[in-house]
């Protein structure tokens, strides 16, 4: 019977009228001063984890194929690299704009980022369709896996940027409250960092 009492007690403590926890990823407990810092750290830890995944593929590329390389279109490689680099800048400008409350510029740069992201994915798709090597040879195995996994991150990034764009159009986000924008833009930069390593590994190193 006494245990019932303790359960009742437990519920009674919970039933005391007070701010109900929201567990809101964006805002969390309204009295949670650590929320922004925790969001930041969580996102960065996610990047740390992801970089191990990409590192494993980098290792596999050199383990399988040494420094040998299939024939790739250098201009196409440089082109999509440039596209992704520019998209990082536009994503950055988009974040800066919303941080200053400039919704017009925020949406414009965001849209530009999305277009460039789609262009990058299209470039990869074109590269795949014209590749002169097959996926059953060592370099091809590495090439298609790495570009494929990276492109899947680009596509998911574009989807999230699209969601942020939609929310931005509907009036969400402000200079003070734009964690959603910041997180997605950081993810986008991270995808760019991955390409910074994949581009030389797949296109430049070796012969």
């Amino acid at each position: 019977m006494a245990v019932v009492a303790s359960r009742e007690q437990a519920l009674a403590v919970a039933a005391v009228p007070r701010v109900v926890p929201s567990h809101n990823g964006g805002g969390g407990h309204h009295d949670e001063p650590q929320r922004p810092a925790m969001n930041q750290l969580g996102l960065w830890l996610f990047f740390v984890s992801e970089s191990f995944l990409f590192a494993s593929l980098l290792v596999a590329r050199f383990y399988l194929a040494g420094t040998s390389r299939g024939h790739v279109d250098q201009m196409l490689g440089l082109g999509i690299t440039a596209v992704l680099l520019v998209s990082s800048l536009t994503a950055y400008l988009s974040e800066v704009s919303i941080a200053q409350g400039n919704r017009g510029a925020f949406l414009f740069y965001l849209l530009l980022t999305i277009v460039l992201g789609v262009a990058f994915a299209g470039g990869v798709a074109f590269e795949w369709s014209t590749a002169e090597f097959s996926r059953s040879e060592p370099y091809g195995t590495a090439f298609f896996t790495m570009t494929g996994l990276h492109a899947s991150h680009v596509i998911s990034g574009v989807a999230m940027l699209g969601l942020v764009y939609y929310l931005g159009l509907r009036g969400h986000f402000s200079a003070k409250d734009h964690w959603g924008v910041e997180a997605v833009v950081k993810y986008w930069h991270f995808v760019d960092v991955v390409w910074v390593f994949f581009y030389p590994a797949l296109y430049l190193i070796g012969a």
Binding site: V48, L53, S56, A60, T141, T145, L149
Partner: peptide
């Protein structure tokens, strides 16, 4: 947080070898 990605990567490679004709 960190090393688990390697098991996932290994499984991804086996899966690609099986279903898509890759040759890891």
């Amino acid at each position: 947080l960190t090393f688990t990605q390697f098991f996932a990567a290994a499984m991804l490679m086996v899966t690609l070898d099986r279903i898509a004709g890759f040759s890891f």
